[in-house]
Design a protein around this nucleic acid. Structure first.
Lengths: 141, 141
DNA sequence: TCTATACTTGACCATTTTAGTCAGGTATGT
DNA sequence: ACATACCTGACTAAAATGGTCAAGTATAGA
């Protein structure tokens, strides 16, 4: 199981943004340069972040993005959800009443994967953008 | 982030195996039928499990596989490691002294992903095959 | 000894996902 | 008007996934 770069980039970009948006909006170009992420790719990501009300955009010269909420109100869950980075441990259809793998019942490890999903998601629900900012104040990058 | 079916199948198959290997070896054909997993695919998986000393094979008629160790000595970590289901949250090369994304330093979220990896791995290190057997004794599948 | 069963190995492949790029646009501050 | 920066959608190369297929080898039982 691996984290996709879309999810990673989204978090990296938002941490970067959060550190600089106190006064002025931050342009994707700046984030792109500082974080080494392709500008075109960032635009895709921010389009989703905007749709999910995590950031607001300001167009025109001196434009850019700002956070829609306070850093402590933005959890990793929200970010990942916005960019479709979801935790999936089972292939089974949720809608059908049927079990996994075409069987009539749930597969013998179904509960295990549910536990795992909860375990991972609880991590994402606890961590906010503010937490990440704090743990970054010590070392400069 | 999602679990691959190779990892899921490995665990499903081993739980199935553990429930039936008290007296005789269990054939992949039986596991295939009970769990609805392709026989050819199971063979690939068990080849890896064998290389990692998680199961032993017995050839010929009435042959099959048996566990190499007691169920409480086989952790999910061991199983996942055997079938190359690894938890990867960063793309960065571990060998180089360089940072992530071509930068000179670690990316600003590097510590976060390390934390996440540890969080997930600790789940896998706690769970043994025996735990899964127990939680399955209640309901029959 | 013959044969069915079951493990063993390695090559192959279609589909999906990933990680972007590219090519246009539109809005706005100066 | 023009440079900056957001906005949108189409496109794509490469890798990973989730298998299948073919051709074995070993062994128990008739």
């Amino acid at each position: 199981m691996k984290l996709t770069s879309k999810g990673r980039y989204a978090v990296m970009a938002l941490v970067d943004l959060a550190r600089f948006d106190n006064i002025n909006p931050v342009s994707l170009r700046d984030i792109s340069l500082r974080q080494g992420i392709s500008l075109d790719y960032l635009e895709q990501i921010f389009s989703k972040l905007k749709k999910n009300q995590i950031v607001k955009s300001i167009r025109g010269t001196q434009g850019g993005y700002i956070l829609s909420k306070k850093p402590n109100e933005i959890k990793l869950t929200n970010i990942f959800h916005a960019v479709d980075e979801k935790v999936k441990t089972v292939q089974c259809k949720k809608d059908s009443k049927k079990g996994c793998n075409g069987k009539a019942t749930k597969c013998i490890t179904h509960n295990l994967w549910d536990e795992l999903e909860n375990h991972i998601n609880s991590f994402f629900e606890k961590k906010s953008l503010e937490d990440l900012l704090k743990s970054n104040k010590e070392h400069r990058y």
